[in-house]
Measured scan of single mutants.
Amino acid sequence: AEKTGIVNVSSSLNVREGASTSSKVIGSLSGNTKVTIVGEEGAFYKIEYKGSHSYVAKEYIKDIKDE
């Protein structure tokens, strides 16, 4: 089941290729951006990003809701 969340950062949140802080950064999301969460892996959520799937750190996503 998909969930949505809100990016909870003051500046921007790195979007990564994989579920690791050493993964390549492929983009960023600004605070209060709504994201669609399709899964989770460790400390990361797998999200829909620009037509494919990428990862963001869970600690920076708030207001998780089931869609």
Rank of each mutant, 00 (worst) to 15 (best):
A1D: 09
A1V: 14
A1R: 10
E2S: 15
E2F: 15
K3V: 09
K3S: 07
K3G: 05
K3T: 08
K3M: 11
T4M: 10
T4C: 12
T4R: 08
G5K: 04
G5Y: 06
I6L: 09
V7A: 05
V7I: 08
N8S: 12
N8H: 10
V9Q: 07
V9W: 06
S10D: 12
S11T: 14
S12Q: 12
S12I: 10
S12N: 10
L13Q: 04
L13E: 03
L13W: 03
N14V: 15
N14T: 12
N14M: 13
N14D: 15
N14L: 15
V15D: 01
V15E: 01
R16D: 01
R16M: 15
E17C: 08
E17Y: 05
G18W: 11
G18L: 11
G18T: 13
A19R: 01
A19P: 15
A19D: 02
A19M: 03
S20T: 10
T21Q: 12
T21I: 13
T21C: 15
S22I: 08
S22Y: 09
S22L: 10
S22A: 12
S22G: 09
S23F: 06
S23T: 06
K24Q: 09
V25P: 04
V25Q: 04
G27P: 01
G27D: 03
G27M: 02
S28L: 11
L29C: 03
S30F: 09
G31E: 08
N32P: 05
N32R: 07
N32M: 10
T33Y: 06
T33R: 05
K34Q: 10
K34H: 09
K34C: 11
K34D: 03
K34I: 14
K34G: 04
K34T: 11
K34P: 07
V35Q: 00
V35E: 00
V35D: 01
T36Q: 08
T36R: 12
T36Y: 13
T36N: 10
I37T: 01
I37P: 00
V38N: 04
V38S: 04
G39A: 08
G39T: 03
E40T: 07
E40R: 03
E40P: 01
E40K: 04
E40M: 07
E40V: 07
E41H: 08
E41N: 07
E41W: 06
E41R: 05
E41K: 07
G42C: 05
G42Y: 04
G42F: 05
A43T: 09
A43Q: 11
A43Y: 07
A43S: 11
F44P: 00
F44Y: 10
F44Q: 01
Y45H: 02
Y45V: 03
K46E: 06
I47P: 01
E48D: 09
Y49R: 00
K50A: 10
K50Y: 10
K50S: 07
K50F: 11
G51N: 07
G51H: 06
G51L: 04
G51D: 07
G51W: 04
S52H: 10
H53S: 06
S54C: 15
S54D: 02
Y55N: 00
V56I: 08
V56D: 00
A57D: 10
A57I: 08
A57G: 09
K58D: 00
K58C: 03
K58W: 02
E59H: 08
Y60H: 11
Y60W: 09
I61F: 05
I61H: 01
I61G: 01
I61N: 01
I61W: 02
D63K: 09
I64P: 06
K65N: 12
D66Q: 12
D66P: 12
E67G: 12
E67Q: 13
